[in-house]
Design a protein around this nucleic acid. Structure first.
Lengths: 332, 332
DNA sequence: CAAGTTTGCACAATCGATTGTGCAACGAAT
DNA sequence: ATTCGTTGCACAATCGATTGTGCAAACTTG
């Protein structure tokens, strides 16, 4: 337990134990029986290692080993339950599989995404999961060139297998739920407004398609200006709605909990008209069901998505298919 | 861009460029001018490296270098805004300082906390920030033995400097806010109930002390059974309140957003009595202000906490002092 | 043109752990 | 007493990058 500036190495321990570094290494990594070292040597080495507060130098160890057992993930943000849940579950599942998870958060910044991916490859990650990446194919191309497996999550790419939510189906279901509640609570048939996200974004466009399909199911036309998808932030949602003071009943499809924050701010400022508004949100938040006017949320099946992704880890024959995982609709 | 199973190394590039590995290394890590290599060699090497999709082997590089520039953090959960915000901000600030952040989530499991700390030390982290650790001193002791700096965040320890919220002051302020609103809205003076957390836990006990101080300020006694601190989960909070059907006005101090989920569930089930309940919560959630009955929240100053912690990074003369960062009280 | 200086690069040691191989010492079998 | 198998361990090469040092060739100066 001395406190030299330098870290204890197997050479220090070897000297203290009167053994060779290779013997110490074998004891410390558990392969000593295979190398026919005596139990007494093993005990001695383990005791000394404990005393000296030895911790293996992973850099040195990994340099020599063939596999790193590191699995990387990049995530845009931790600021909502969805990505937080993904990161947490990813780590737990990685540990269950005896992998060392390294998650890094890239702030929705395409350059940072790519830099982070390169760093993870530098650290010899065996597989990289790109979650909600702006440009997943750029990352996949780089990984492929380095011989590293890559998998897309939440947003699909074309150069790696992708696991995403079934946005279309869930959006359609949610739209029907909101319209049902508008009908029963307000005696109003639609059309709803779609708030939040970006049209160019894959998920948003799939959700808009589901939203439109539900309206088509009911033979209701959607005016052009009812699709308000010009950004994710709460601010954006709020300012989009700023000059919208509904006279009659209104229904909204909100595209994320981040946008929902803006919608709820707007809703809170409506006064008496508040009671004639119903909305639902694509994405779950535990406080969602207590927000007045909220009729339901879509919860993406993070556990299933990650299980599906982990099933692909290590697969050599990766076809570039996109796997869609069903969501859960939670009516309130 | 060939796709051999093996990763491209400086030796491969050296062969292709007709140069020595050391020259390639110098070019790729930017020290080529210092080594007086010609620009033409540098350009050639860079071009080949690009073509071959070269990525440095961080393990090999770090093994030789003296500093790793890795900074580690352990975090209990990502399931609320507070820890999510901490992790995200930590990563951003680490990158700003040219450090490589590695965050790992330990599920409030003491063993996992320690294992994760050991892993981060193995990866040669230069500093480890233990956030909300169950047993921070065990981690600090291990770090010290390995010559690694450690810093506690959110929960204090005695073997490393700690940066925590000023729980006492903020709890006192929040208690006053809730009591003020109980007085003005309900014409009721208290005493409030304290819901969530664990008495043994440092933060909870500081908050209880602040809660009691506010009552003392007003000369109000708190019955023993009004302190309901037997766990953090929403379930716990809910079941604690399950058989509490208030007849008159009631006020609650809720100790975390997780507990708040349980409180809000209970509140929603109260029926007409709902309007005679006021509560406030220690911790922020963006949907908090829209929850009926919620009169305010305490937002911990994550930015300031992390700045304070980062100011300690690299400090040799670390005194084991606990630094308390003021919180923001947000009245609704 | 000789001596000194600068330019441009290669060589080899090194970081700490892993792992294939070799080799004494010892006991058993003949 | 010789041969053979086993036990218990040490030696040395290796992973890929970094870095101190050395040394030709080119260039400058007198």
């Amino acid at each position: 337990m001395r406190n030299d500036a330098k870290r204890t190495t197997i050479y220090d321990i070897a000297a203290l134990a009167g053994a060779s570094p290779s013997a110490v290494s074998a004891v410390l990594n558990g392969s000593w029986q295979k190398r026919r070292l005596s139990r007494s040597l093993a005990d001695r080495v383990l005791r000394i290692a404990e005393q000296e507060g030895y911790a293996v130098n992973a850099q040195a160890s990994l340099l020599r080993r063939e596999r790193s057992h590191i699995i990387g993930m990049i995530v845009p943000k931790y600021d909502n339950r969805y990505f937080g849940h993904i990161a947490e579950e990813f780590e737990a599942m990685a540990r269950d599989r005896n992998l060392f998870p390294v998650v890094t958060c890239t702030q929705r910044d395409p350059e940072l995404e790519f830099e982070a991916a390169k760093e993870l490859v530098s650290y010899q990650a065996e597989c990289l999961i790109s979650t909600g990446a702006t440009d997943p194919d750029r990352i996949s191309a780089f990984c492929k060139a380095s011989g590293v497996q890559s998998i897309n999550l939440d947003l699909p790419g074309t150069l790696a297998p992708s696991v995403i939510s079934d946005n279309h189906a869930a959006a359609r279901d949610l739209t029907h739920l909101i319209m049902d509640r508008c009908a029963s609570d307000l005696g109003w048939a639609g059309p709803l407004r779609f708030v939040g996200g970006r049209r160019e974004d894959h998920n948003t466009s799939a959700r808009i398609a589901g939203f439109e399909a539900a309206h088509a199911d009911r033979g209701i036309a959607i005016p052009e200006d009812h699709i308000m998808a010009r950004g994710y932030s709460a601010q954006t949602a709020r300012s989009l709605l700023d000059d919208f003071a509904p006279e009659g009943p209104t229904g909204l499809f909100v595209n994320s909990t981040i946008s929902l924050e803006g919608v709820v701010q707007w809703h809170a400022g409506l006064g008496a008209a508040r009671s004639r508004v119903r909305y639902g949100c694509f994405d779950f938040d535990p406080f969602g069901s207590f927000l007045p006017g909220n009729v339901g949320m879509v919860e993406q099946d993070v556990g299933k998505m990650l299980e599906t992704a982990f099933a692909l880890v290590g697969e050599r024959a990766a076809n570039m298919e996109t796997i869609r995982v069903p969501c859960r609709l939670l009516p309130f």
